[in-house]
Amino acid sequence: MTDWSDPRLPRNQTSSPRQLKRLSRNFAGVGVGIPPERLQQIAMGQAATEDEFVDVTFALTATQLRSEQRRTKVSRAQRSCVRGAIVFAAVLIAINVLMCLGLLLFVLTQHTTPY
């Protein structure tokens, strides 16, 4: 499980402008509109207002939660596909066994005498 107690912005040396734009879009997806330039300033250590700090903390937590929900959804879908493939294979094997038994009975009945 993710540690929700201390969400942090990525530090400046690890965040490119592209990453900050993506982070800004993710924040907008959870209802927090902060431009990437301001995120970079906050990540570099520039003073942030209390409202900005609350918004960033909320947005980080909300995006982590959405990410975990998405991973959980994908995991469930994969398990469902594997389960379906197993059932399909079992049905295919059962049909094959029944056809072999039918062929065996047909061959055995052909070699019996009619009287």
Rank of each mutant, 00 (worst) to 15 (best):
R18Q: 12
G31P: 00
R79C: 02
F58N: 04
C81E: 10
A90C: 08
V54C: 03
W4C: 03
A90N: 06
A43M: 09
T61I: 14
L105Q: 13
S16R: 08
Q110I: 06
A48F: 13
V87G: 09
I34S: 02
I95K: 03
L105W: 14
W4T: 03
R18T: 10
T61N: 12
R76G: 00
A48W: 12
M1G: 12
L65K: 09
R11W: 03
I86T: 06
I93E: 11
A94W: 04
L23M: 04
A48I: 14
A43C: 11
M1H: 07
N26H: 08
T72H: 11
A77D: 11
L65E: 06
S67K: 13
T2A: 15
N26Q: 15
R11L: 07
T63R: 14
P114A: 10
R25F: 04
W4A: 00
A90F: 07
N96Y: 11
L9D: 03
L103F: 15
T49H: 01
T112P: 02
Q64F: 08
S24N: 09
C100I: 15
I42S: 03
V56W: 01
S67G: 12
G33V: 14
T2G: 13
A47G: 12
T61V: 13
C81P: 00
F27C: 01
D51G: 08
R25V: 01
Q40H: 15
P35G: 14
V97A: 07
E68D: 11
E52H: 10
T109D: 04
E68Y: 08
V91Y: 01
Q41T: 03
L60G: 01
N96D: 12
C81F: 10
I42L: 03
F58P: 00
C100T: 15
Q69W: 10
T113A: 12
M99V: 15
R83Y: 06
R22V: 04
S15F: 01
V87D: 15
N12W: 13
P36Y: 13
P114V: 12
Q110A: 05
T61Y: 10
P35N: 15
